[in-house]
Design a protein around this nucleic acid. Sequence first.
RNA 1: GGCCCCGUCGUCUAGCGGCCUAGGACUCUGGCUUCUCAAGCCAGCUACGAGGGUUCGAAUCCCUUCGGGGCUACCA
Length: 486
Amino acid sequence: MADKKVRVRFAPSPTGDLHVGNIRTALFDWAYARHTGGTFIFRIEDTDTTRVTDEYIAAAIDTLRWLGLQWDEGPEVGGEYGPYQQSQRLDIYAHWAQKFLDQKDAYYCFCTAEELEARREAQRAANVAPGYDGQCRNLSEDHIAAFRSQGRLPVIRMRMPDGQTTFVDQIRGEVSFDHKFVPDFVLVRGDGSPLYTLAVAVDDVLMKVTHVLRGEDLLSSTPRQIRVYQAMGLTEDEYPTFAHLPFVMGQDNAKLSKRNGEVSVNWYREAGFLPEAICNYLALLGWSAGEDRENVTMQELTKLFTVERVHSSPAKFDMKKLEAINGDKIRALTLDEFLDWSLPFLKKADVIEGSEEEIALVKAALPIIQERITKLSEIPEMLKFLFVKDFAIAPEPVEKIKDDASKAVLARSLGELVPLEDWSHASIEAALRSSLIEEMGLKPRVAFGSVRIAVTGSTISPPLFESMELLGKSATLARISQALAL
RNA sequence: GGCCCCGUCGUCUAGCGGCCUAGGACUCUGGCUUCUCAAGCCAGCUACGAGGGUUCGAAUCCCUUCGGGGCUACCA
């Protein structure tokens, strides 16, 4: 088995936007495939047609692409074991269900939902492990015919033989389940549609999956999956190796969900997080490179990632750390990359429309804000002052430059700047320093603070002299005059 | 309730019997730098859930206990 070429799959059931936990799983699947030189398969598990929609499927594909987790086989790229969407493989599942029936590994069960619920209730009351009681296990042909004539639609149930299932989880070691606690489970609904339990196992076998890396929530369903492998004729050394990843938890220590934090990857995307930052941070949840290594590129991740270094304990999601990493990644961007990421945010915020002049100015301004933001969404606010048509100082800061001292600073500044020929930040700084600081004897933070408010409209801004250079001489002088007139 | 998984600073983690008076990162606090805000640099706070063993020696191995989580569907 070790010498088999690795094939791993990420198989979400898109019942909503892909969330952080899904992505962590996808990332590990991807990294493992890349690390081993194997194949990364992307499969859509949409057997629950009431919950999975086409929009969510399209969104999942888009999200995975955006993150840079390229798949080798799956939707839109194809592959020799497709289709990779379970709703398009119904005949395959039907075939295997019939085979299991023929082999007596599975049987028709006519119990209704109400009957089952009533019996489960009784089991709970009697303090017995709830689960299917095997009532329809050995129905005679006559019984079956009788039920059918009543119009009852049977489900197909897999028979769990006595005994136990033991498997070696790559992360947790040997795990064992007694079949007393693994009741006969449903493979096919009354309407003939397949259930996850059937579809995953069949697809993993048919798609030649060698390693199943998935969430810990599926750990206890593993015996059922193995049961299907066995019914398909696979022996232990032929079915996939399992590795159950620890959960990503929310602030309240429950599995991360909408209730306890932002879970949708799209939310992070819109909030201005870079895909590489999300992946880097997520990689650190439940895995570490060792040697105090934390900041890794996608490339490095594929080199360093091994299942041996994946944890068995759950990790809590920490937005602060994600932001810190995002800041690091933003600072590591080249100017052109940074520009590409910035433009959509500036346009969406209506700061720019996208003309060439605007883009040139953005490009010139980006270097001075690159180390000042942790999220791309902060860019519009920081650069707005360069583009606003009707410049106005915010209500709070405007009060701070109405006093005589501020007026004096602004008046002197204007006087110094009007004749200035070299409108570079260095020469602007030299002019203002010698006049305001040296000659007027003001403290830099006081003097430049007033100019900052007048020019940028805020007490917080990118470096002042660079900002003035970017704004241009006439606009800068106009703003100072405007402030002086208040 | 039953079954299963998990347990090192507030958080993510290093650690796989002696290198640990437990290291790093994020957060927080203080300082330096400084035209604001950041960034950067320095310093500080804080952890092996508890109790038993095994051993010359345990965060590391075993047991118990407590705590947290998952599953227990004609969801995945």
